[in-house]
Design a protein around this nucleic acid. Structure first.
Lengths: 209, 209
DNA sequence: GTTTAAATCATACGATCGTTTGAATCAAAC
DNA sequence: GTTTGATTCAAACGATCGTATGATTTAAAC
């Protein structure tokens, strides 16, 4: 059994706290306390709080980006151009994978992604750049072929809608889960619901002038 | 012409800065500097930074809530039950109203709403409570009648999708506006696109088991 | 002109922040 | 056993934060 690596313990604790309280709402001291390591360890292993955030974000988002890319590759390898529903599924699935009901880690990762995408601080949003943008542009091109009737502007608007739903929908954008409806459903059901919802939205006829 | 009320100037400056840098990213000093008033004025007029945030949020969200409520009332006054498309329109329209292209204030208000809905700090998300929840529950009931085939869980999932799109979609959840596509389109076009997008999504057949 | 309450002001307090420092500890190499 | 480089540690730095204080100014009432 490998000894609990200090570096990894910091990453885990930071992932927890960043997801829960945001970047600015989390102090380095809170992270090192939760990790059970010395305060200076963050500076030693990562250089600064911002670089720690970047490392945390990378560890969470990179597998998702890769899976989205692989899904698109698989579709494009087929004989016919993929339809909107298939594209939606390939794009959304990685965000729901490995997050079975009650999976605390999955819900936490969702919150973290939302936090990364919506944080006003440049340090938080700025890092992703390359990978994220590449994936998005590839899907944009694929959708453009699948939905030739749409103007580029409206297509782009819809892509942003897909992003908003997949990223935000599974965590409580609203204050808290309403009592009569159980907490955010994760896992298979939510993934299918999202694909249904988004495929219908993407396939809607172009808005008239 | 009424003299520039200190209270109002603080509210305006705070709305600016909260929208741009978030709650924790904005210092009271930055607000009073921008407003051109003394540092202690925030404590005097609002009591604390948190209460100032609450006042800013209330000023932005309350008219929207009222308009959403009025729109639903108007639909329910009709002879037949409103359809999903009408409900989507009534819900989304107030979020797009008064925000013509190039309206800086409108874009700022959008960012602020997203910031309120997604901020991890309880002080920011906690205040809205009553009004917001009431509106949402009323729309939930109306949608339930319009879409009888949906399970309550999937209906709730879709409502959350509508929220995510209307709230988030018009600001750059993504890092920055891509160069080839102009910055977030506000105004008429975006509103129609959103209604098309969301009406199709809401009206999708129930997801099979 | 005096009184009175509201408002604004300069200033300071205590707390917490991210970061740095230099000594102490550890483990493998020699 | 000593050396060496990597790691951990307690402590402190300067900066900034939200808030409180008490004096000062303003303006209307009398």
């Amino acid at each position: 059994m490998a000894p609990p690596d200090t570096r990894t313990q910091i990453l885990d604790a930071a992932e927890h706290l960043f997801a829960e309280r945001g970047y600015r709402g989390t102090s380095v001291r809170a992270i090192t306390d939760l990790a059970g390591v010395n305060l200076a360890a963050v500076g030693y292993h990562f250089g600064s709080k911002a670089e720690l955030m970047s490392a945390v974000a990378r560890r969470v988002v990179e597998p998702i980006n890769a899976a989205q890319c692989a899904g698109l590759d698989r579709l494009l390898a087929g004989t016919t151009d993929p339809g909107a529903a298939e594209l939606v599924e390939a794009f959304a699935a990685p965000l729901f994978d490995g997050m079975s009901v009650g999976d605390e880690g999955g819900a936490r990762r969702s919150r973290l992604i939302v936090m990364i995408l919506s944080d006003p601080a440049e340090e938080v949003r700025g890092w992703a750049g390359a990978g994220q943008d590449t994936v998005r542009e590839r899907y944009l091109a694929a959708f453009a072929r699948a939905l030739p009737g749409l103007s580029p502007e409206e297509l782009w608007f819809r892509i942003r809608g897909v992003l908003a739903v997949t990223a935000v929908d599974r965590v409580e954008v609203h204050q808290r889960p309403t009592p009569d409806c159980p907490s955010p459903e994760v896992g298979e059901a939510a993934r299918h619901w999202a694909v249904t919802f988004l495929a219908a939205a993407m396939s809607a006829p172009p808005t008239g002038p």
